[in-house]
Simulated scan of single mutants.
Amino acid sequence: MKVRDKVIVVTGGGNGIGRELVLNLLNKGASVAAVDVNSGGLEETVNHSGEHRDYLSTHVVDITDREAVESLPSEVIDHHGKVDGIINNAGIIQPFVDVEDLDYEKIDLVMNVNFNGTLYMTKSFLPYFLERPEAHITNVSSMGGFLPVPGQTIYGASKAAVKLLTEGLHSELKDTNVNVTVVFPGGVGTNIMENSNAEGTRESSGDDEGQSHKLLTPEEAAEIIVSGMEDDKYRVLAGKDSKMMDRLYRLVPKKAANIIADKLR
């Protein structure tokens, strides 16, 4: 689905990849509803939008609050007149500790933001998408959603759930006007570490796995994601590390898992 003249909702639009997704879409001629729990981050996104700010709306919403999410489609439509697509980008990681040492409060938070938030947004907007001539759902999983990363096991489980949710949606919607894409970023240079560990901050952005010199920039990641949406791709591997580990994990999953484990040891 080409994004020009479309209205796209972006979660986590106040920071990192989410902000760059908003700016990328605006530059390509889309109108955007940016969603984030952080009002200050959304204000900063507006400040970066320049001449396109008239095509941007901001919505302070905690995506783990189902009732708040369910009221969001009408807010977006009231502002923009329609809604054509969504990029479920918002997500957090866990503290880098083993499952044994991770408390249930953190576990619940990661699952609620990464999986339930994506599910709530998808279910709330899907009925409106089915009424459009064409529409698109893009869900951001992670390289950690198909490859185990020690110290990020619950995060990986939440992103694996996003993967299967998205692939299931693709099968369910294959004969409709709604296309579905799942994205697997590798290492992206964002501040998700800071956001995720800041007293339960529910902020978004992407993934911080990998060494800094190998990381995609948020701008590069956003371009890959939007291009995948416009090309109606089934799956998008964002970054050389994600592409390499995807191939290796398919061929020799245990070896691939051991490589990551040894690298982090």
Rank of each mutant, 00 (worst) to 15 (best):
S204C: 05
R4A: 15
G18M: 06
K82Q: 15
I107H: 03
D208S: 12
L23G: 01
V252L: 12
D36T: 02
T58D: 10
G81W: 08
S171N: 04
G29K: 01
H79R: 06
P133C: 06
E70I: 08
N89K: 08
S205L: 10
D98R: 13
P133Y: 08
L21Y: 06
L216R: 07
G16P: 06
N27D: 14
I87N: 13
H48K: 12
M245H: 11
A238F: 04
I137P: 08
I259C: 04
S57L: 06
I87C: 13
E67H: 03
L164I: 08
D207G: 00
G18I: 08
N24P: 03
G12I: 09
G144Q: 12
G151T: 08
A161N: 03
G200E: 13
V32W: 01
N24Q: 14
K123H: 10
F96T: 05
V149S: 07
K255R: 11
R4L: 09
V178N: 01
T64V: 15
V35P: 07
D84F: 00
K28D: 09
V46G: 06
I224Q: 04
N89W: 07
I225P: 01
G228K: 10
L25G: 05
L42Y: 08
G50N: 09
D208P: 04
P185E: 11
N38P: 05
E44L: 10
A157I: 11
K28W: 07
G145W: 00
K2L: 13
V97R: 08
K82S: 15
E194S: 10
V76P: 12
S31Y: 12
R4Y: 04
I224K: 00
E209Y: 14
D62W: 11
P218D: 07
L215M: 15
R247S: 13
V140L: 02
T138S: 14
A34W: 07
M244N: 01
E219N: 09
T122C: 00
I87Q: 13
E219I: 08
L72F: 14
I86S: 07
S74G: 05
I17D: 00
L72V: 00
L21T: 10
V97F: 01
E223G: 01
E199W: 08
V22C: 11
Y55R: 15
P95S: 06
N179A: 13
E100P: 01
S212A: 14
E167N: 04
G16I: 04
A238G: 00
R235Y: 01
G206I: 02
T201K: 15
V252Q: 02
L173D: 12
R235V: 03
E194D: 15
E44V: 01
L109F: 02
